[in-house]
Nucleic acid binder design. Structure first.
Lengths: 229, 229
DNA sequence: TCAAAAGTGTTGGGCATACACCCATGA
DNA sequence: TCATGGGTGTATGCCCAACACTTTTGA
């Protein structure tokens, strides 16, 4: 095998698709670029991988530097390596997607003077580089994964109503679900635990709050149980 | 964003897990290393990514150089970036998995003087680097994917018996399937087309040969059909 | 005629879907 | 008392799983 230094090397970056959920729909965090190329356009948070950090460390570092978000659910998505995806030089990017709940995490609009903001997945601006492709891949992955892994809870606050949970699935799967069947299914799996609390400050009957029962979920999974919505 | 050249760069490689199926079980292609580190140990085929080729091009090039295999099913798996995964220097590897049918492709034991060979997944040698981890990830992905995407056909010859197809799923999923239910399901989906031929040279009643009906599968998929074994 | 694998149907139970009304609460 | 969403049960059909015998063929 030839030694690496005989060849020019592609540069390596990470980019992160951060999803969140508001009352309306699925949101994604974008950064306004302050440098060429694509100056002034919106892009995914991300940056170069340092030689002394793993890929996930790089992703977490960039995310915190650019958006203030930390300690969130993060999972590798795909690695994009088209030759001309960055007009400056050859850059390969390892992408991640992250899920946050808006109640638990403050987003500092930015820590290094760049503008960070949430955008609805249904109303996206023009994006720099091939970030539109990346975003689409992330959305598809989320849609696929949420059906058989309980990652959806990462988008909900710690305590949530079943209606909120149903809404989450409706937004991600992009179709309506039947309220009674959804409740039957979720409660039947026993992966959420009812709390003694109810919603506050609503102008109608307050709904019961539940929380994800991870201990129970792990136990069921070990017994070959299959989470599927 | 700081410019890339301010930082030392990780090197970038591709590694490929090539699966095939013999009468017994799932096989994987390995290369015997002729250089340090891990000299004499078995490893996945792979090598450095050049600056003027995409990741998939790099994977296909390395695969052909090291095993003679070309024009095969290839899909990106995961990118591994642990800091010490290569003892020489920081190397990030983008991994792929490939599926071949043994009847359609000759494997030249090697084109550049190294030894290439098939190993049963149930009887693997000690592997170089973190290739054991990569192999495990590839096996899991295959197991998951084969159930809802018809990639299994890539491991079968063009014409195959339903028994062979069932055997394929049994090996990958690692459990026995009921013959009648399997046939009912597969034939009911109408994604295989019966040919006029039958097996040859068997010491018992010869089974009918079928072929995958990709045209039909694509049509069904567009209508929202869901392939699931 | 024997051995080996091909090929074939039915039944029962569980699960998903479809569907509509009363209840609790705050304004 | 009204508006709003919370909460609940049943009936139907479909799909999956379980299960055993006859047929064909070559040796």
């Amino acid at each position: 095998m030839a030694h690496a230094y005989e060849f020019a090397r592609p540069a390596l970056t990470v980019d992160i698709v951060v999803f969140a959920l508001d009352e309306e729909d699925l949101q994604v965090m974008l950064i306004e670029r302050d440098l060429k190329p694509f100056e002034g356009q919106w892009a995914l948070p991300g940056g170069f991988v340092r030689v002394d950090e793993t890929l996930e460390e790089a992703a977490r570092r960039e995310l915190e530097e650019e958006t203030g978000l930390k300690d969130i659910y993060l999972e590798q998505l795909y690695t994009f390596g088209d030759i001309k995806r960055d007009p400056r030089e050859r850059v390969v990017t390892v992408t991640y997607y992250a899920l946050v709940n808006l109640e638990g995490h403050d987003v500092q609009a930015s820590t290094d003077a760049r503008n960070a903001a949430w955008f609805s997945m249904n109303d996206l601006p023009k994006l720099a580089f091939d970030h539109k492709t990346i975003l689409r891949a992330a959305h598809e992955r989320l849609r696929g994964k949420v059906r058989y892994q309980p990652i959806g809870f990462e988008l909900l606050p710690e305590k949530f109503t079943l209606r909120q949970m149903q809404h989450l699935y409706e937004v991600i799967l992009d179709r309506e679900l039947d309220k009674r069947n959804f409740r039957k299914k979720v409660l039947g799996m026993e992966i959420v635990k009812e709390t003694k609390e109810i919603e506050k400050d609503v102008a109608h009957r307050a709904a019961r709050l539940y929380r994800f029962d991870k201990r129970r979920y792990d136990k069921l999974t070990k017994q070959g149980f299959n989470f599927e919505i």
